[in-house]
C-alpha cells in the first residue's frame, strides 16, 4: 500500500475549474476582509463620536460584532462550503447554548447593590 503520507507533491491535482473557483473564493475573502475592516471602523466611530445615546450604540456595535462573527465563520473558516454540515451543527449549537449562559450571568444574579 503506497501511503504517500509524508512525501511532498510535485504538482497540485486541482483541475482548471477548481483553480478558477479558488481564485474567485480568494477575491470574495478579500472583500469579506474589507467589510470587516469597515465594520470595525464603524464600531469605533460609533463609540468615539458620542452622538447617539449609549443604549443605541451598544446594541449597534454588538450587531456589528455578530456580522463579523458571520463573516469570519462562513467565509474565512469556510462554514458555508459543503461537507461542513456537522461543523455547522456544533457551532450553531454552541452559540445557541451560550445565549442563556450569558443572559443569566448578566440578568439573574440577584439584587446587586454597588
Amino acid at each position: 500500500m503506497a501511503d504517500h503520507l509524508s512525501e511532498p507533491f510535485e504538482k497540485s491535482a486541482m483541475t482548471n475549474e477548481e483553480k478558477v473557483k479558488t481564485e474567485r473564493e480568494m477575491r470574495i475573502q478579500f472583500i469579506a476582509f474589507a467589510f470587516m475592516i469597515a465594520l470595525t471602523f464603524l464600531a469605533f466611530i460609533a463609540v468615539g463620536a458620542e452622538v447617539a445615546p449609549p443604549g443605541f450604540v451598544i446594541s449597534f456595535i454588538i450587531f456589528l460584532a455578530f456580522i463579523q462573527l458571520f463573516l469570519q465563520l462562513y467565509y474565512f473558516m469556510h462554514l458555508k462550503d459543503k461537507d461542513h454540515g456537522w461543523a455547522n451543527t456544533f457551532m450553531v449549537s454552541g452559540l445557541v447554548l451560550s445565549i442563556p449562559t450569558i443572559v443569566a450571568l448578566i440578568l439573574i444574579i440577584g439584587v446587586v447593590k454597588y
Binding site: P100, T101, A104, L105, I108, I109, G110, V112
Partner: peptide, 11 residues
C-alpha cells in the same frame, strides 16, 4: 457576586 458560582456550576 456569590450567585455567579451556582449559575456556572449548575449550567
Amino acid at each position: 457576586n456569590a450567585v455567579i458560582w451556582p449559575h456556572i456550576f449548575w449550567i
